[in-house]
Write a protein that binds this DNA or RNA. Structure first.
Lengths: 215, 215
DNA sequence: TTGACTATTCTTAGTTC
DNA sequence: TGAACTAAGAATAGTCA
């Protein structure tokens, strides 16, 4: 049959659609590669077929390209004021909720930068702020940090006061005891002060030390 | 001049490269759109020119497509055990560091899901866990939640104890006082109990209420 | 930079195996 | 599915405006 000009609309026949997808997808990826090579451009391309399968191409690191894309497009979001941090609530649920909210905001603010830099302490975080961030981002970051300070300072002040009030501290042997029952928390504690959380039938995860509850 | 077959390598002439970039870029975006329409595929494409300018296309929400891509490619990271949470340190810096670390881990775990779901409390977070997550993700999430519980419970217990020890609470008029000096924290407080943080010469941001320090 | 204008090359719809 | 074929479109290198 003679080839016809086709209309650009969803192909009805499932098989014809799959064949066309396969052919045109290859064509698209080839064109992307050629453009990248010819013009020294960085390109990221991902395609999900109607069945959900992923095909992707990137001229350099996909992760980096996505970050770069996020940074160039999220500027518009930064004009917003961060939501109000609400101290003074001491319920488990409220504190968890605040942590989740701040997590989301930090994520929105920094994109994926933290992950990439292998950030392992606050000093490095502050370097990021002084370094590559735009003025708006710095301003927003400063606000976020202030609120973060507020949360952590509140906690540390409480702990200091507590420690003061309860001195002198007593030492207990918690080995084998069940320390917490709430939530998903650790049910067992070893005699050298470690807390373990059972994950499944044959593994436990070390959660931390008991020193915090010995004040 | 007669058209020649071209070799796929970087075009030397800057002007020729720019012209080709412009032409082929359009061709590529058109092909991407056509493939998306014809075959009902979701496509995200972004191109950075050699001068750094971004051109992008996505058949549906770019954010969602990037998330979907992240989810399909980050599975391999989830086998790792989360790093140990270290309670018992009460310095400002240590607490900030822990919050940052947990933020990073939550981000790695959930991808961008939280943002998309408009998550606004812990109940919804738990629904996510019960819902679409794979078994590995659920396991990892459970560990993360346990550690999160540990941090928040530690805080809430301290606060409860504190409140008990200091009862009955006194009420003060903090208006105009400087409450905290450390970090980036709020320097001014209004007479209706709000704390403000100066951001620059002409704006302040409301950080929260003073109720937390009235215990 | 941005449009046109070809002559060519490239892509692919329709088909067969 | 996938590969091969082929003629009809589509894209585009080179050029000029």
């Amino acid at each position: 049959m003679v080839r016809q000009k086709i209309e650009i609309k969803k192909i009805d026949s499932v098989t014809a659609r799959q064949v066309t997808f396969s052919k045109r997808r290859r064509g698209l990826f080839k064109k992307a590669q050629e453009l990248s090579t010819l013009c020294d451009a960085d390109i990221a391309l991902f395609v999900f077929s109607s069945t959900g399968k992923l095909y992707d191409y990137s001229s350099s690191s996909m992760v980096q390209l996505i970050q770069r894309h996020n940074q160039q497009t999220q500027k518009s979001k930064l004009g917003q004021q961060p939501s109000i941090f609400r101290p003074g609530s001491n319920s488990h649920a409220m504190l968890s909720k605040q942590l989740v909210e701040m997590t989301i905001e930090l994520k929105q603010l920094m994109g994926e930068d933290l992950e990439v830099l292998g950030m392992d302490d606050l000093m490095k975080l502050e370097k990021v702020v002084e370094g590559g961030l735009s003025p708006e981002r710095k301003k927003y970051f400063r606000v976020w940090m202030a609120r973060c300070d507020f949360l952590t300072m509140q906690e540390s002040e409480l702990m200091e006061e507590n420690a003061r009030l309860k001195q002198p501290a007593e030492k207990f042997d918690f080995a084998g005891d069940c320390v917490f029952q709430q939530g998903n928390l650790a049910e067992s504690i070893t005699n050298n002060g470690f807390i373990y959380c059972p994950v499944d039938s044959d593994t436990s995860l070390k959660l931390g030390y008991v020193c915090c509850i010995l004040f």
